[in-house]
Amino acid sequence: MMELLLGLGLGAMAFTPQGRELGNRAAALIAAQAKKVMDRATPDEPTEQPSGASGSDRPPS
């Protein structure tokens, strides 16, 4: 029963102008929040790897 109600609600969002507007606003808010998180996660200065660092744990052969 819950799946049916959820399906009807999602269908109404996709096929009505008000539903699309609400979905677009929600997506814009989510994208703005994700951008804030990504901006905080990105270092201001690029970090350099020491010479010889290739990301492998194996010793050079």
Rank of each mutant, 00 (worst) to 15 (best):
M1E: 11
M1W: 12
M1F: 13
M1D: 07
M2N: 09
M2P: 05
M2R: 08
L4Q: 09
L5R: 10
L5K: 11
L6S: 06
L6C: 07
G7V: 06
G7C: 06
L8R: 07
L8V: 04
L8M: 04
G9C: 04
G9E: 01
G9N: 03
G9R: 08
L10D: 02
L10R: 09
A12Q: 05
A12D: 04
M13H: 04
M13N: 03
M13G: 00
M13K: 07
M13C: 06
A14L: 13
A14C: 08
A14E: 10
F15R: 08
T16E: 01
T16L: 01
P17V: 02
P17Q: 04
G19Q: 05
R20F: 05
R20W: 01
L22Y: 12
G23F: 07
G23H: 03
G23N: 11
G23Y: 05
N24Q: 12
R25A: 09
R25Q: 09
R25L: 09
A26F: 13
A26N: 06
A27P: 05
A28S: 13
A28P: 10
L29C: 15
I30F: 15
I30P: 14
A31P: 09
A31Q: 11
A31C: 07
A32I: 12
Q33Y: 12
Q33D: 13
Q33P: 06
A34D: 03
A34K: 13
A34F: 06
V37H: 02
V37C: 05
V37I: 10
M38A: 15
D39L: 02
R40A: 08
P43Q: 03
D44W: 15
D44L: 15
D44V: 14
D44F: 11
E45C: 10
E45A: 14
E45D: 13
E45T: 12
P46L: 08
P46Q: 08
T47Y: 13
T47I: 15
T47D: 15
T47W: 14
T47A: 15
E48G: 14
Q49S: 14
Q49T: 12
P50V: 08
P50G: 14
P50M: 12
P50E: 15
G52Y: 00
G52L: 06
S54P: 02
G55Y: 03
G55E: 00
S56Q: 01
S56Y: 00
D57Y: 03
D57E: 04
R58L: 13
R58C: 04
R58D: 14
P59Y: 06
P59S: 01
P59D: 01
P60K: 01
P60C: 04
P60Y: 00
P60N: 01
S61G: 08
S61F: 04
S61Q: 07
S61L: 08
